[in-house]
Design a protein around this nucleic acid. Structure first.
Lengths: 296, 296
DNA sequence: CCAAGCACATGACAAATTTCGATCGTGGCA
DNA sequence: TGCCACGATCGAAATTTGTCATGTGCTTGG
């Protein structure tokens, strides 16, 4: 360990350990950072020798952080936050105006919240009006010009060239092992709200694929659906981040669900400098971290 | 300017512009950072090109910051604060105990306050009791074991090997030009409090040097003395950071005042791990910035 | 129990960045 | 006007950082 005064934490190294945490592993982090695996490995090693302590616990198979690692991670988050804000602050142009933005409930708790908060701070003259609705509702509002932009879920094959992709999600048919599905009977289906478009797709395939789905449960929140699946009430369409160990993924009988994508979609013919900047910031955040961190 | 995503602010560069501000100039900053002048110059240049804007205004003789420079400076301060705290936090040992610390009024408003605040955060189990008194009082308290350590002013020739030097100060005899000092009359003297040891020295030389000083004004705060000097009430001993343009430095007739030094002085036979750490942190802060920033 | 696969570490080398010393230009000042 | 302090700039040297190729250890499935 060099003398305390000459030590310093490289911003890049901090971003590396941050990426390791949020992508779960060095290899994944390297990919997200656009570096080779060995480069990231070296970075961490250098960080460790300069600090004179272990940051990662290499014993186990999965990369785990040591106590010191967790501690540094906390500082890293704060330092990077300030750093990125400084960068934006210095490249900002004075913006004013009004943005009507739509979000889904899912994305509200993601890094989006930070981006929006920072945007407010950096551009106090822009008023951002945010509304949380379901994807289908948001899309309708976009069409009618009620929103300037929205963060919505769409099927992967529906992505438009102007959409900004935030991250992808895979849907699975799931059920609890205790639930048996006789060929003859109709399938009990656990569904999100009426306007949820998983549900639309599910009911559509019901007609095409000759599978009879019967909606036996309806709930707007993922937590409710998860509970219902776990108690064996029926089958549901869930994305990967909601899967629980006790759930069983159904691979036969049902058609493969299409992939979902979260995108930033802009309203028709909206020309708005403030919105351009906000979308650019979201894009930059994504490319920097290789996707938005979502609360799971 | 490279792509927004690939830009980053080097910690070292931030420390450099911070040092430039606090030492007034690149050359001075380079010295404090232990680098060559050209290295610091380059650092700033790189920072500027990576940000795509000017940070320093080179037109004028004195180095002035641009608006962007000031803005970055603000972020730099916050980032460096976090950075340094992270560094300390990772090299800390669990400390507990009690520290009785003495300060002078002057140092209360300096970087010391930040160091103490950070120390509290990093070592919540150490209770730091701080008392503000004049240097002579503090020294007496140290002798009697009432304090574990104190930050006091002493004459440069009185510095002990165990003292940690914070910074030096030069005293000057000053008066307002309108005040004339006839050889025959006694000299009107503007004095700090009774216990101020400038005053002791001044009265001592009065006896030795054959100069008759008559204390005509007594005030505990520097502001009061400054006002009195400016209004021509008498002569005073002031340190450089309190000099005002309208004041006249007296170079003849009076003996040259001794230099003063602010030091951290530890109590006798105090063995205290927490105190060791605190003193070490103060030392490290000094060596990093080449002295403590004092409110002037 | 072995082979394959995955995730990370490591070493050598190439590329880039950073630093230094020297030198030059400029504005302030006696 | 000449000096001086300060900063810019340049080429060479030193240091840092990244990549490729390869090695190690752990898990997994046959």
């Amino acid at each position: 360990m060099s003398d305390l005064n000459n030590r310093r934490l490289e911003i890049d190294a901090l971003r590396a350990i941050w990426a390791i945490r949020h992508h779960g592993g060095i290899t994944r982090a390297a990919e997200a950072l656009g570096l080779s695996q060995s480069a990231v490995s070296h970075k961490i090693k250098r960080l460790e020798t300069s600090l004179g302590c272990e940051l990662l616990n290499r014993k186990a198979g999965a990369t785990a952080f040591t106590t010191e690692g967790e501690e540094l991670l906390d500082y890293a988050g704060r330092i990077l936050g300030l750093h990125d804000e400084a960068l934006l602050s210095l490249s900002k142009t004075t913006l004013a105006g009004r943005i009507a933005l739509g979000l889904t409930e899912d994305t509200t708790c993601s890094a989006l919240a930070h981006i929006l908060g920072r945007f407010r701070r950096l551009h106090p003259d822009v008023s951002v009006r945010t509304q949380v609705r379901m994807s289908l509702v948001l899309r309708a509002m976009l069409e009618q010009g009620e929103l300037d932009a929205a963060i919505v879920q769409v099927f992967a094959h529906e992505v438009r060239p102007t959409d900004v992709i935030l991250f992808r999600e895979t849907l699975h048919w799931v059920k609890h092992p205790s639930l048996l599905l006789p060929q003859t009977a109709s399938v009990p289906f656990l569904s999100f709200h009426d306007d949820c478009f998983y549900r639309h797709w599910a009911l559509d395939i019901g007609q095409d694929g000759g599978i009879m789905l019967e909606t036996v449960f309806e709930c707007a929140s993922a937590a409710g659906i998860i509970a219902a699946v776990s108690s064996g009430m029926g089958v549901a369409l869930l994305n990967e981040r909601h899967l629980r160990p006790e759930m069983q993924i159904i691979t036969d009988r049902f058609p493969v669900p299409p992939d979902l994508v979260y995108v930033v979609r802009r309203g028709r013919k909206v020309r708005n400098a403030a919105l351009d900047t906000l979308v650019a910031e979201i894009e930059s955040e994504i490319s920097r971290y290789g996707g938005l961190a979502l609360a799971s």
